[in-house]
């Protein structure tokens, strides 16, 4: 399992990278590894307001569809369209390929998320 320092992590295995008032959101290496080959990604519509823990998108492996939950609230300012034709990018580089970018509504929500070492401990405690 790979993590990156400087990112925030959720219990649902999403990561958040903050740049100014924007949050880039993707799924973790642990998540892509558990899913296996990703064959389809559904990204949210630009302009949509999404609450914390609401569905941001869907990632589908060969076997099943999994919801991606937004770890924070915000408005979608960009969806990563390159995933439409190349969903496998998430398998290849999960931290370089975000699913969407949100304009952060409440920076305080970030403080409820894990940092990289806390997330690693969390995954281990889940028996992974």
């Amino acid at each position: 399992m790979n993590t990156r320092p400087g990112l925030y992590y959720s219990k649902e295995h999403e990561w958040v990278r903050v740049e100014g008032d924007l949050a880039y959101i993707g799924i973790t290496d642990y998540a892509q590894e558990s899913l296996g080959s990703i064959v389809y990604v559904e990204t949210p519509k630009v302009g949509k307001a999404i609450g914390k823990d609401e569905v941001l998108g869907v990632v589908e492996s060969v076997k099943a569809a999994s919801d991606v939950f937004s770890p924070i609230s915000g408005t979608v300012v960009e969806a990563n369209e390159s995933l439409q034709d190349s969903p496998e990018l998430i398998n290849e580089a999960p931290y370089e390929n975000h699913i969407a970018v949100l304009k952060i509504q409440d920076p305080a929500e970030l403080e409820q998320l894990f940092n990289d070492t806390q997330y690693e401990e969390y995954v281990k405690s889940q028996g992974a």
């Binding site: 296996g36 080959s37 064959v39 492996s61 060969v62 076997k63």
Partner: peptide
Amino acid sequence: PVSYSDIL
């Protein structure tokens, strides 16, 4: 076993 390497 669901997969040994990669389903595809």
